[in-house]
């Protein structure tokens, strides 16, 4: 089974480093990005399963980053981290494709729990995709060969 890879995106450097340490201690592969742009850059290079994304960031803010991630990497699960108690920003995030949301300040355990849930969801999704591709293969091997050659 694949290990969950998490990326933390926040403009608070210390939050990134401490939380990264914690997650690594707990045995998770963790990456950090200090901005939306950086996060997108990393996503291009690495296979990340879960992104923990702060809503409020200078430059490209959380919602914009989320939209961009969902556009470029639809399979990546995003959990929004909001400093605002209102659910409005969270709702907006959820509408834009976020899997879940967390309120600041949040416990690392809560964060991990949500991340695990999101990871399960992702795995189920990947499973479905695999199954679908399998069915396709059963049906018409030539097509698959053609698909593979064109893609």
């Amino acid at each position: 089974m694949e290990k969950m890879k998490i990326m933390l995106v926040d403009d608070e450097e210390r939050f990134l480093s401490t939380t990264k340490k914690l997650l690594i201690k707990k045995g998770y592969e963790t990456l950090t990005a200090a901005s939306g742009a950086e996060a997108l850059e990393i996503l291009k290079q690495r296979n990340i399963h879960i992104v923990i994304l702060d809503v409020k960031m200078p430059g490209m803010d959380g919602i914009a980053t989320l939209k961009e991630i969902k556009k470029q990497f639809p399979l990546v699960e995003v959990i929004m981290l909001t400093g605002h108690a209102t659910v409005e920003s969270a709702i907006e995030g959820l509408k834009s494709g976020a899997t879940d949301y967390l309120m600041k300040p949040t416990e690392v355990d809560d964060l991990l729990q949500k991340a695990e849930e999101a990871f399960e969801k992702r795995q189920r999704l990947e499973e479905k995709i695999r199954l679908a591709q399998g069915r396709k293969f059963m049906k018409s091997p030539r097509e698959i060969i053609r698909d593979q050659s064109t893609s």
């Binding site: 608070e12 939050f15 401490t18 340490k21 914690l22 201690k25 400093g83 600041k104 300040p105």
Partner: peptide, 14 residues
């Protein structure tokens, strides 16, 4: 305030 609180919380957990 929530941002520093978040860091404090993480630090505490660590």
């Amino acid at each position: 305030i929530n941002n520093p609180l978040q860091i404090m919380k993480s630090e505490h957990t660590l």
